[in-house]
Design a protein around this nucleic acid. Structure first.
Lengths: 339, 339
DNA sequence: CTGTTAGCGCTTTCAC
DNA sequence: GTGAAAGCGCTAACAG
């Protein structure tokens, strides 16, 4: 089953004009007489002519397609990024070719190969957790296909990165807790092989040191899931570790911590104040609503797409940029000890 | 900045063959001598030749692109559907062109226009909440572009639908509550202008009637968000309405109900048992974990894509199908009154 | 003002 | 075995 479309040729034949005349009439070329234009446009309308973009792509060597490679569409954050990308793309006449790596290097490599074959005009990518080699992305660069990374960037590849201010966000969160009178702030940290998580830890540490508190290694605990958050909180309580606040590397871990604290009958924020990272919708679903560092995926998507467009439209290679979006602390009940 | 690719012509010139010979050699055509094939393939490899898919599309009148139109990428359910679509598409050599309607009819119309222009080989769509006219989809059909709807279907358009068994899911949930000894089951219902929500209400009603309980209109309340779920629960309690269970049209509403119940110091499930719909991740984040009707977006995406592929590959129009995927009740603590 | 021609990259019939 | 030529749909330089 395939649809056969009306072409410029059909119009030309019908009207007895040449295809070039029709083509020009359709584009409102000044050379063409008004009468001809009218005739052509009317018939085009009537026949529901639409130009074949594939033929145009072939001619223009441009597909108006942007390849988008994300680890998982189902992550809320990435979904918002895609949303931002889509909006800007749509406004500029581009469509998205979406591929997901499912956090696997092999699928990521395939995805890159696909977008290359697909002759996209540019690529936006966020690397999978597994990715440890960047040859596939380098190939894109070698082919001079504009490439912009967002969120999870490949440091080795010399191109524009759009990230969020993880350090700053963590710093604000920690400083806020200190301002609320907390003295022993636990940090539930993510895997330190990823820059993004190192930055959050460093922001936490810097905030402590800049505000008269000591960094205590025993208060930094590896935990980055709901279950681990709950488990480690229980453990800390059971071991009698003294703490009056938790800054978690993401909201799910914070949610886990909240569960454990409630079970242990600890009052939030009076006994233990809590701040997460990501500002996922869950922050508003739990009671008390918890504070979190907001990172706008939507904005990141927009920015990434805008930068990509600049590269696509530029004649020669633009200097690479490192765009860091602000991460804003949203304060809610879970960390408001002073009123 | 645009990359210039190696073409078949480059290889032909370099080797002194004609383009047709090179083309044939590349496809391992029997007419071509082994020697020539070797030469061509080696040079192709060396030059990193990849066929230009746009030229192929033009020739074959097929783009290997599938248009996907969803209300919002950020909804977890749709994200999982996309994931399922992507997997099947990828396995079959198709790529996705993703568009979102943002729940707006106007954007949906634009999206349909875009995929039509994009000469996709087929379209998968789920309609926006605003959609009340289906002309744009009808146009797709008129152009003989294969179209499959999933989840939110357009009843008026005669094409294959993939939906989940909303009636059956609601029926199981309600029956389960009855089995747990509940006598007065509240239903928080969604907008009744959408079939999907009517089906859930009907399933609830049927289960009551088949199991010796009366359907009481006053126990059916319009509420389909977290806030409304919380508010209406408070209201019911305040008004002294007698109920011992809530079956909510989605998990967020159930989460809202849970919040209100906890505030009112009602024990879940002893005082009020609770079942949601959708089996979103939130079911596991709240305490007690709550029961919900699981609907597999991933499977829906796969099925939709498979059906679309069948249509694309078929010579003539296939009969339309109404595929209904099972909705399975997942029982957790919130509704386990008997042990 | 309009038509002819070539070309984007590739496949495929028809010749030799 | 290999090449020439046409054609997919469209645009644009070049002719009239």
């Amino acid at each position: 089953m395939r649809s056969q479309h009306v072409t410029i040729k059909d119009i030309a034949n019908e009207l007895g004009f040449s295809v070039s005349t029709v083509s020009r009439a359709l584009k409102n070329h000044p050379d063409i007489s008004e009468e001809t234009k009218r005739l052509v446009n009317e018939l085009a309308e009537h026949l529901r002519y639409t130009p074949n973009p594939i033929a145009l792509s072939l001619k223009n060597r441009s597909s108006s397609m942007i390849g988008v490679i994300v680890p998982e569409v189902v992550h809320y954050f990435f979904a918002t990024v895609i949303s931002g990308i889509e909006d800007v793309a749509e406004r500029n006449g581009y469509s998205l070719m979406l591929m997901q790596s499912s956090e696997q290097l092999s699928k990521e490599v395939t995805a890159v190969a696909n977008v290359m074959k697909g002759r996209v005009d540019g690529v936006l990518a966020s690397v999978s957790k597994q990715t440890n080699t960047y040859e596939h992305f380098q190939k894109l660069m070698d082919e001079h296909i504009p490439l912009v990374f967002f969120d999870r960037v490949a440091d080795d590849v010399d191109t524009t990165h759009i990230t969020v201010d993880d350090f700053g966000g963590a710093y604000s969160a920690t400083k806020h807790l200190i301002g609320q009178g907390c003295k022993n702030i636990v940090h539930f940290a993510g895997p330190q092989n990823r820059k993004i998580f190192r930055d959050r830890l460093n922001g936490y540490r810097q905030a402590l040191e800049n505000n008269g508190l000591f960094f205590k290694p025993e208060l930094v605990v590896a935990a980055d899931t709901l279950d681990k958050g709950a488990f480690e909180t229980q453990r800390l309580l059971a071991q009698g570790v003294v703490f009056d606040a938790i800054f978690a590397v993401n909201d799910f871990t914070a949610a886990g911590a909240m569960r454990a604290l409630k079970e242990a009958k600890k009052a939030i924020p009076q006994d233990v104040a809590l701040v997460g990272f990501g500002d996922e919708s869950i922050t508003l679903m739990l009671e008390p609503n918890f504070s979190s560092v907001h990172q706008s995926g939507y904005e990141m998507g927009q920015k990434a797409m805008e930068h990509l467009l600049m590269q696509i439209h530029s004649e020669d290679k633009l200097p690479t940029e490192q765009v860091v979006l602000p991460a804003e602390l949203v304060i809610r009940e879970s960390s408001m000890r002073l009123s």
